[in-house]
C-alpha cells in the first residue's frame, strides 16, 4: 500500500509539472467562465452562471481524468513502464490504482478553482452543503472517466489513441451538455449520458434543494459499467503488457 501511494504521489508530481495538463484542466475552463460566466439566462431551472460553473468545472475535471490518463496509459504500456513496474515488489494492480488515485487528487484543484470563480466572480451564493454536493457529484463523474481511460488505455495503441480520445470526449461533453444546455430531442438523448446526469444532480440541487436519485443511479450504473470494462481490459492484456 505504501508503495502504491508513493507511485500515486509521483503521478501527481508529474501532472503538476505538466503545462498542457494545467492548461486543459484549469486555465481553459477558467478562461471560458471569465468570458461567458456572466450571461443572463435561466437554464434547467437555475441561472446561467450556476449552470456554466458546473459545466466548466466538469469539463476541466473530466478532461484531466480522461484524455490525459488515456494517452499516458497507452504510451506507458507501449514503452514498457507497466512491465517494469510488474518486476518490482509492487502489487500487480498498483499501476492502475495509482493512476486513478493520482487523477482523483489532481482534479480536486480544478473543480475547486472553478467553483470559487463561480462564487466570487459569477456571484453564485449557495448554502455550504449544496457546494459540497456539487463538488462530490463532479468528482464522482471524474472517477467514471478515470475508469474509462484505464480501459481504453490498455486496449488502444498510442498511434490510434488521440482521435479516439477526442471522439469519446466530445461525445460525452456535447451530449452531456457541458458546453451549452440541451433542449428538445438532444436533451432526451443526452439524458442517457453520465455527464448530463452529473450536471443534472448539481442544477437540481440548486433549483429544488433535492438530490434526484434517478440521476445518482444513472451515474452509478455508468461507473460500475466502466469499472468492469477497465478490469476486463486490464485482465485481457495481462500477458501482453
Amino acid at each position: 500500500m505504501r508503495g502504491t501511494l508513493s507511485l500515486a504521489m509521483a503521478e501527481v508530481n508529474r501532472l503538476r509539472r505538466n503545462k498542457r495538463y494545467l492548461i486543459f484542466t484549469v486555465a481553459l475552463p477558467v478562461m471560458l467562465y471569465l468570458i461567458f460566466g456572466k450571461e443572463v439566462a435561466t437554464v434547467y431551472g437555475v441561472s446561467f452562471k450556476v449552470f456554466y460553473m458546473v459545466g466548466m468545472a466538469s469539463f476541466g475535471a473530466f478532461a484531466g481524468a480522461f484524455n490525459n490518463n488515456l494517452i499516458r496509459i497507452s504510451q506507458e504500456r507501449k514503452d514498457g513502464w507497466i512491465r517494469q513496474l510488474r518486476l518490482t515488489p509492487l502489487p500487480a494492480n498498483a499501476y492502475v490504482v495509482a493512476k486513478i488515485v493520482g487523477s482523483m487528487a489532481t482534479t480536486i484543484p480544478s473543480i475547486v478553482i472553478v467553483l470559487l470563480l463561480g462564487r466570487f466572480y459569477g456571484g453564485v451564493t449557495l448554502p455550504i452543503w449544496k457546494w459540497i454536493t456539487i463538488a462530490v457529484a463532479i468528482w464522482l463523474g471524474t472517477l467514471i472517466f478515470a475508469a474509462l481511460a484505464v480501459a481504453l488505455g490498455y486496449m488502444l495503441r498510442p498511434d490510434s489513441v488521440q482521435p479516439i480520445a477526442m471522439l469519446v470526449y466530445f461525445f460525452f461533453t456535447i451530449f452531456g451538455g457541458l458546453w451549452f444546455p440541451l433542449s428538445g430531442g438532444l436533451r432526451k438523448f443526452g439524458e442517457i449520458t453520465p455527464t448530463y446526469r452529473v450536471i443534472a444532480i448539481s442544477t437540481s440541487v440548486v433549483a429544488t434543494g433535492k438530490v434526484s436519485m434517478v440521476n445518482v443511479a444513472v451515474v452509478l450504473i455508468w461507473l460500475v459499467g466502466f469499472v468492469v470494462f477497465a478490469v476486463l481490459a486490464v485482465r485481457a492484456t495481462a500477458e501482453a503488457v
Binding site: A10, N18, G80, R83, L87
Partner: peptide
C-alpha cells in the same frame, strides 16, 4: 528486461 520502459517526466 529489454522491453522495460521508464516513467517519463521525472
Amino acid at each position: 528486461l529489454q522491453s522495460g520502459g521508464l516513467m517519463p517526466e521525472v
